[in-house]
């Protein structure tokens, strides 16, 4: 049914992703397909790494942990953005193309007032990508 599942992760807020992560693992087992974890960072030093490499290393060990814990195949991909605050959606859309994922599993917050002004990440990915999108409420 699916060939690759893509899961956008924010390493700084893993706590909010628990449900989405286990959903992705379950789906990966069910369809026997690999999961690719995608993280967006900037070239400037941030809390998660002084360079994009450092960030990439953290993301790839995160992917390995998930593989061990869930018994699935995983990989990771780091995306570098000039302005992550505003460009996350576009970066993720690009990642869908690059990874060839046909199912995106992502966490979302409860829609609030601000979503009328700025659509949520999940909403935008669903509207602009050819992949199926599973938005998991936290």
């Amino acid at each position: 049914m699916y060939s690759t599942i893509m899961v956008p992760v924010d390493l700084a807020h893993l706590g909010t992703l628990t449900k989405a992560l286990s959903t992705a693992t379950d789906l990966a087992k069910h369809y026997d397909v690999p999961v690719v974890y995608v993280g967006v960072t900037s070239a400037a030093p941030g809390p998660l790494g002084h360079t994009p490499e450092e960030y990439g290393d953290k993301l790839s060990s995160f992917a390995a942990e998930q593989a061990n814990a869930g018994g699935i195949k995983t990989s990771s991909q780091t995306l570098v953005s000039h302005d992550p605050t505003t460009d996350v959606d576009d970066a993720l859309l690009q990642a869908v193309k690059d990874t060839g994922a046909d199912l995106v599993v992502m966490a979302s917050h409860l829609p609030g007032l601000a979503d009328y002004v700025w659509p949520s990440n999940g909403g935008k990915i669903a509207a602009h990508s050819s992949a199926s999108v599973f938005v998991v409420r936290g």
Binding site: V36, A43, G46, T51, P52, E53, S60, S76, V80, D98
Partner: peptide, 27 residues
């Protein structure tokens, strides 16, 4: 169980530079 880490998203390998070691964590 493999970890096929792909890092095509990074512009290019950054090569050597001299990171300052500090205990301060950004943020």
């Amino acid at each position: 169980m493999t970890d096929q880490s792909t890092d095509q998203g990074i512009p290019e390998p950054e090569g050597a530079s001299d990171i300052i070691q500090t205990d301060y964590e950004i943020g």
